[in-house]
Design a protein around this nucleic acid. Structure first.
Length: 481
DNA sequence: GGTACCTGGAC
DNA sequence: TGTCCAGGTAC
């Protein structure tokens, strides 16, 4: 039994036993056992242990208070049933048993040596699809270099979307996470995970672990991590191992897989220009996507049929700063009729005007790239800040794969040749490289003559592969054969 | 359904 | 080199 930190309840029982001892002329132990039996326990040993256990469980869990800050924001509207949910949220109590499970899982996570943060979904939040990004969550995101709300503007234009996962023992469900600050008031940071309601119940304690740049959610109220993390076949165990991997191990693993794929030509899995990227990524087990995040456990993969120019990323202008307010407007003003369609496909650079009369001007004092027309009109504006963010987000680590296109029995195949590994782009060089015309931008806007629909596949910011060393420190080249 | 991204080209 | 272009997905 605890001596020093004995609770008031235990002290009371002991003094009651002392009194009983002198009244009945029995020993202290006999008195304690008698009292224990009155409480339905066999003896003091059992009763005492029960008291300690339940007192332990009644201590607050080392998890953040549930947060319902967002209900005070004017953009969140309430009807009567919402107030019922709110009342439920505010009065919810976590059972002793549930607390024990969570506590044991918290210990297991700490033992595994991962950084994590916790949130508690509320009935109100689940209904409205809103979670407050509380301070502990924000601190965690910042520590992991995952996201910094401090530098994020308010409103939907600044919303950030990321890939996230609902992690279970047997499978990971891929989902989308949004991080944003509403326009209301100070714009208290919020987040949401698409489909969260199917993964959690209000009142659960959910851990966020950042693995390879993605948030992975583990429901601490339903798992037994102590067991799961010892089971090497469990996906949760795999997740923790992945977290603890050193950066180079992930790259080494990728390189080994690429060498394996380079042993024989790969059959093109999709017709057209984009076949090589689709084929390589598919063979690596990556699904086709339009995510801004890197592809392979935090490493971006670029494949090419030995072409010279490569796309860094796609990014539309800042429409709020631009004269034109959408791609269709740029198309209408500066496009051309070709075949049945109306198109604007062209490269824009600072070095010279293109055939559509478009060029870039670098405004150094404002840290902006401005697209202008020969008529003197401004067309569009990109801020250096946004372009650097995109570059950093997309290319913190990249493998540039060179493949040779070979025809086998009339079908295109790809023979992987070399891989160039780059890390940590020199962000400060992005704007100077645009200024120098080394990085250019392609418009890819088209209005179909048949459907009248406008499609925008860009704008693509591109660089010649031979100039990669101007943007990345020490690119390292590997032969895959 | 429109927009913004992804994956990449040829001549 | 510049001019112009391709098949896809997420929301």
């Amino acid at each position: 039994m605890p001596k020093k930190s004995e609770s008031r309840y235990i002290k009371n029982i002991k003094s009651a036993a002392k009194k009983l001892k002198s009244e009945r002329g029995i020993t202290q132990t006999q008195a304690l056992d008698k009292i224990s039996q009155d409480h339905g326990f066999e003896n003091w040993r059992a009763f005492g242990a029960h008291i300690v256990d339940s007192e332990q469980a009644n201590k607050p869990l080392p998890v953040p208070q549930l947060s319902l800050e967002f209900v005070n924001d004017p953009d969140v509207e309430f009807d009567e049933s919402d107030f019922d949910d709110l009342e439920e949220d505010e009065n919810r109590e976590i059972s002793t048993q549930a607390k024990e499970i969570v506590l044991s899982n918290l210990r297991a996570l700490a033992k595994a040596g991962v950084e994590f943060s916790i949130f508690e979904p509320t009935a109100t939040g689940l209904k409205k699809s809103i979670l407050d990004a509380t301070q502990p969550v924000r601190t965690h995101f910042e520590l992991e270099g995952f996201h910094n709300y401090e530098f994020q503007g308010q409103g939907p234009d600044h919303k950030v979307m990321k890939v996230a996962y609902f992690a279970n023992n047997d499978d990971f469900k891929k989902t989308t996470m949004s991080l944003y600050r509403p326009n209301t008031k100070k714009g208290d940071p919020r987040m949401w995970f698409r489909g969260l309601g199917e993964f959690v119940t209000a009142g659960d304690q959910i851990a966020i672990v950042i693995v390879d740049g993605s948030a992975c959610l583990i429901n601490l109220s339903v798992h037994d991590l102590k067991k799961d993390l010892d089971d090497h076949t469990s996906r949760l165990c795999e997740l923790i191992n992945q977290y603890n991997k050193k950066e180079n191990e992930v790259f080494d693993e990728l390189l080994e897989k690429l060498k394996e794929l380079a042993k024989s030509p790969l059959e093109n899995l999709r017709k057209g220009d984009t076949g090589v990227g689709f084929t390589v990524e598919t063979r690596l087990g990556i699904e086709a996507n339009s995510s801004k995040a890197p592809d392979y456990h935090g490493i971006e993969i670029k494949s090419g049929r030995s072409q010279t120019r490569t796309t860094l990323f796609a990014q539309v202008p800042d429409w709020t700063l631009s004269s034109c307010k959408k791609s269709a407007e740029i198309l209408d003003k500066y496009g051309y009729a070709r075949d049945d369609d109306f198109k604007l496909y062209c490269t824009v650079s600072t070095t010279r005007e293109n055939t559509q009369g478009l060029r870039f001007i670098y405004d150094q004092s404002n840290d902006q790239v401005i697209e202008v027309h020969s008529s003197g009109e401004d067309v569009a504006v990109w801020t250096g800040k946004q372009l650097r963010e995109r570059l950093k987000e997309k290319h913190s680590e990249t493998v540039w794969i060179q493949a040779e296109s070979v025809e086998i029995n009339g079908v295109e195949h790809f023979q992987l040749l070399t891989a160039i590994h780059t890390k940590a782009p020199i962000l400060s060089q992005l704007m100077p490289l645009i200024h120098a015309g080394i990085i250019t931008m392609d418009h890819l806007i088209k209005r179909s003559g048949k459907t009248g629909r406008v499609s925008e596949k860009g704008p693509l910011f591109k660089i010649n592969k031979k100039d990669l060393d101007l943007l990345f420190p020490e690119p390292v080249s590997y032969s895959l054969k």
